[in-house]
């Protein structure tokens, strides 16, 4: 199931599940749990400022907080995700404080976790997490697509054109491919760049197309699949345009 967690449908889905849960349908919990767990974990991680996996103690606290939020939530309180985020964050901070009191002189006392934790956060904190998650979904999908072409992000970091001019050229080639049916189908079927075509009909510099093959493919894929977040990153723009936006 793919839906960005900052869309209206997503909110509706959650609200629907919440209503079901309130009406006694415990199965609704399972559906919503899978959807919301990444968010819960991400909030925990950001609160603790380190990676929290499902096996960590903090994840358990997040789960409890999740149940608590479901119980206490009311439609008038605004978006469920924001409410949930706040509950999880507060519970984790409570837990950390207790922990600190119990063993004053453990390593946790020496780390600087405590200092960042108590900071108050507003809704933008959780909205930012939602954006991050949405972007993460896009990136994961792109990663899967790229694997079909045998391209990893590591390769991309290696072959990415360093000069702005070259980069814009490569991005223009990618755009060309994405907008042209023939070229597009060639790329998707053969998993290669239609070099001959590009060179003969579009006067594309073979050197650029060859050297930055992986970069061009990745960029084309982003155009093709209309990743809303990532697309804004790879649109060809010159310096002048940059200032405008």
């Amino acid at each position: 199931m793919y839906s960005a967690c900052n869309t209206v449908e997503y909110d509706n889905l959650i609200n629907q599940a919440w209503r079901d849960y309130q009406n006694g349908a415990n199965s609704a919990l399972d559906d919503i749990y899978v959807v919301l767990m990444p968010f819960c974990l991400r909030v925990s991680s950001k609160t603790c400022n380190r990676y929290i996996s499902e096996q960590d103690e903090e994840a358990g606290i997040a789960r409890m907080a999740f149940l608590e939020a479901l119980e206490k939530y009311d439609i008038e309180q605004g978006r469920f995700l924001l409410f949930l985020g706040n509950v999880i964050r507060n519970r984790i901070i409570d837990y950390k404080r207790k922990e600190k009191k119990r063993n004053l002189l453990t390593f946790s006392f020496l780390t600087r976790e405590g200092s960042d934790m108590a900071e108050a956060v507003d809704n933008s904190f959780f909205e930012g997490i939602m954006d991050d998650l949405a972007r993460k979904q896009e990136i994961e999908k792109l990663n899967k697509l790229l694997l079909e072409f045998n391209i990893g992000f590591k390769d991309l970091a290696g072959v990415s054109p360093r000069q702005a001019k070259t980069r814009v050229n490569a991005q223009k080639i990618a755009m060309l491919i994405a907008e042209n049916e023939e070229l597009k189908s060639y790329l998707m079927e053969k998993k290669m760049l239609p070099m001959k075509e590009l060179e003969a009909r579009w006067q594309v510099n073979r050197k650029i197309a060859d050297r930055y093959r992986k970069f061009i493919i990745a960029t084309t894929l982003i155009y093709l699949y209309e990743f809303p977040y990532l697309k804004s990153y790879v649109l060809p723009m010159t310096r002048g345009d940059e200032n405008v936006c």
């Binding site: 972007r135 994961e140 990415s160």
Partner: peptide
Amino acid sequence: GEYKKVMTSAYLEVG
């Protein structure tokens, strides 16, 4: 649009 590898010890996640 440039992909870059950065060295950082900060806590980061995809996205």
